[in-house]
Design a protein around this nucleic acid. Structure first.
Lengths: 192, 192
DNA sequence: GTCTATAGTGGGATAGAC
DNA sequence: GTCTATCCCACTATAGAC
């Protein structure tokens, strides 16, 4: 049984297999409740009431489980950004759209810090992810940034702000709302 | 003997102790030649021709050794940015200055990928770093960005671009020079 | 200041019985 | 599909002799 099995929708809402879904859910619970270092085969198995070796009947490695979580993160971020756009008035400006995307991106990451880190740290295991999911997740930013160079710059800015905040890199009193506004304002400027 | 011992200059060029310096050099060699996972007490000791337990006479933990490397990275980045500014004409524009800073930041990181990752991943062990070094390293950016919010946004952009590039997150053909230019151009705009 | 020896912990993964 | 048993790995860190 492959960890990267069936799903059809770009947003990947479909269920892979009940077994894989429950493994992913258990892994997510371990990650979010016990932290990054606790994400081990033994603990994931324990959540399911089985032993670690049994997991290998469903998944070929720990990497496969991490890939399930990364896919979950991509769906979460993409979904959060789409939801944010849906709350905007009729024809929002580029700047308003980007600001909404930035807010939702940041909020999602702050609500799921370990999952965000897992999904953005190191190389992306693209072979293990549902086809199209990576692009689906990034699509809102691409749509509202002025061109692909701006889109990449905007994504880099958002990721940089987010990971530096999660890692406590900014000074204690720093006004991060203002820094986000400054960045989004700069990057959104141009023909609207 | 404490790992965080003597140094006086803000740029930390002074030697802590010959022993600590040689440990730091050995650790750096392991990191850059063998990669992140190879940075273990055993291997650092092996480079010095001793056994791992002997390291504990000079350093109280592995974290202390990592802190030595992080300090080295901060000195490297700060130094590279200052060197880049020194090559600029008399009174460079803000934009030209920021562009030079960005280029040197990126170049330094690409030349020392594992060291850059080590220094920017997770929380900064501020207690173990020479006082003032963190600020010294960031000072060039603060000086040429328009205000602290812009400075933070610029730093986040630069870090985001850098780490995403190091982790191979951009599409294969992506024109990263253009993305850097787009970001720096946007963030530098304003009163000069 | 170095050594040997070792404690103590944890991890990923496999074999083979049931 | 699950188990037990186990392998093999690697790590940080300490104790105590020299």
């Amino acid at each position: 049984m492959r960890a990267t099995s069936a799903r059809e929708e770009p947003d990947g809402r479909s269920a892979p297999s009940p077994r894989l879904a429950s493994i992913a859910a258990a892994a997510l619970a371990v990650l979010e409740e016990e932290g990054r270092d606790a994400l081990t085969m033994r603990r994931v198995a324990a959540r399911l009431g089985i032993r670690a070796p049994s997991l290998y009947k469903h998944v070929d490695s720990k990497d496969a489980i991490e890939a399930l979580l990364i896919a979950e993160a991509l769906r979460g971020i993409g979904g959060a950004m789409r939801a944010a756009l849906a709350t905007l008035p009729r024809r929002p400006s580029r700047r308003a759209s980007l600001a909404a995307l930035a807010r939702s991106y940041r909020s999602w990451a702050l609500a799921h810090p370990d999952l965000y880190r897992l999904a953005t740290e190191g190389e992306l295991p693209r072979e293990r992810l549902p086809a199209g999911l990576e692009a689906w997740s990034a699509e809102p930013v691409v749509r509202f940034a002025a061109g692909e160079d701006r889109a990449r710059a905007t994504w880099a800015f958002a990721h940089g702000m987010t990971i530096l905040e999660l890692d406590g890199r900014f000074p204690p009193g720093a006004d991060l709302d203002a820094a986000w506004a400054a960045g989004v304002g700069s990057l959104a400027r141009g023909r609207d």
